[in-house]
Computed example of a mutant assay.
Amino acid sequence: MKILILGGTRFFGRKLVELCLQTNHDVTILTRGQSGNPFGSQVKQLIANRDDENALAQALSSTTWDIVYDNICYSPKEAQKIVQILEGKTKKLIFTSTLSTYEADGIVKTEADFNPYDYEIRMGDREDFTYGEGKRQAEAVLFKEAPFPVVAVRFPIVVGEQDYTRRLHFHVERIVNEQPITFTNVDAKMSFITDDEAAAFLYFAGISTIEGPFNATASGAISLKDLLRLIEDESGKHAKVSLFGGDANSQSPYAIPADWYMSNAKAAAAGFSFSQLNDWLPKLVNTLVKEQQKSILPQQH
């Protein structure tokens, strides 16, 4: 199959490209050209800035694809433009969405908790919305206006050794370095998925017949308190936790007020087999702790 991936040079986007290549698909990536092309001649590369509508339309003008993956759409305006450009050019679009389409209100989320099909569209650019609202608006545009099938994959926090956001790394680094971390509610539970599993689900969403919104998360959730305990056990250091207050540097990127996780039952029923969070999270934490400890060892002379 011919596959186009918007945003495929780092983290789970890169893993998706690798997976598509391993399964012998004809892959094109569209990037701004700033991160280079880690795949060389294995892929075709189109260069365009997503924010330049004319350049994007020109880059995508002469080819059709079986599947298009859009990992870098954050607003209804971007969603509307890609729908217009891809009309007649793809058989299916997979949109990377987010747990942030749901409120962190302590209730385990299912796809029905945000219905993009009846959500009022307010057109605008990414700077006009919060991250979560921008994704809600983009979903609404895609599901209401796209003439081709769409899947919106709602991911929780994606983690992995190569995570450029370094949100899990932040907690490891602060604990290993005996620095304080500020939370809102350490008892709040969260869900996660690895970059490998995120890529695997995106691939599944493309080649299967599913349509509509799907939650994709490892099975299980963990409280922030238990996550900190994992890091403490692996590092031998005690977490210095404060609730509220603290300076900007100490604020946890996981500082949520209440449980914020979701059910993967719909995706599992569609045929995808998810990992168990507790099967791999301790191993990942162990790896990140060892990396951090190694980085602070005194230089040997």
Rank of each mutant, 00 (worst) to 15 (best):
G33R: 08
D70F: 10
P149N: 11
G106F: 07
D70K: 11
R167G: 03
Y203G: 01
Y102E: 14
T28S: 10
A152K: 03
Y74K: 05
E120H: 06
F129L: 01
G8F: 07
D52G: 02
F183M: 03
E103L: 14
T28R: 06
A55F: 04
Y74S: 00
Q300R: 12
H171I: 14
T31I: 03
D52S: 11
L277F: 09
Q299Y: 10
L142T: 03
L19Q: 11
L6S: 14
L142A: 01
A258C: 11
G160E: 15
D52Y: 02
K283Q: 15
A270P: 00
A221L: 11
A205V: 03
I181T: 06
R167P: 02
H171Y: 05
P149R: 09
H238F: 15
D118P: 09
D118W: 08
K15G: 06
K290W: 09
E127G: 04
V176G: 00
R174Q: 13
F155E: 07
S97V: 13
Q80K: 12
D125H: 08
L243M: 15
Q58F: 05
K144V: 05
D259F: 03
K225C: 04
E161M: 10
S62R: 00
S235W: 07
R167N: 09
I72C: 10
F129A: 06
Q162P: 02
G160K: 13
A268V: 12
T9G: 14
Y102L: 02
A188I: 08
Y117L: 15
A255C: 11
T64F: 01
G271K: 00
N215M: 02
I67V: 00
L60K: 05
N24H: 10
I207F: 04
E232G: 15
E111I: 14
A140C: 06
V150Y: 07
W65G: 06
R229T: 13
D163L: 09
I256S: 12
L230V: 07
N54M: 14
L6F: 08
N278D: 15
D105V: 06
F183V: 00
T28Y: 04
N115E: 01
L243T: 15
G134C: 05
V285S: 01
T23Q: 14
Q292R: 15
P76K: 09
P257C: 01
F192C: 13
Q80E: 10
E211D: 03
D52P: 03
Q179T: 14
L168Y: 07
Q293H: 08
D51P: 07
L284Y: 01
G236D: 14
Q22F: 08
R154Y: 02
C73D: 10
A216K: 03
E87I: 12
S250N: 07
R10L: 15
T101F: 11
L19C: 08
I207H: 11
N49P: 09
K81N: 12
A258S: 14
N286I: 10
L6A: 12
A216C: 05
R229D: 13
D247W: 04
G13K: 05
D195Q: 09
A104D: 09
R32N: 08
K135D: 02
K135F: 00
Q251C: 09
H301G: 15
G36N: 01
L99Y: 13
A104G: 03
T194W: 04
D51R: 13
G36L: 03
K77C: 14
A146K: 00
V285P: 08
S61E: 00
T101Q: 08
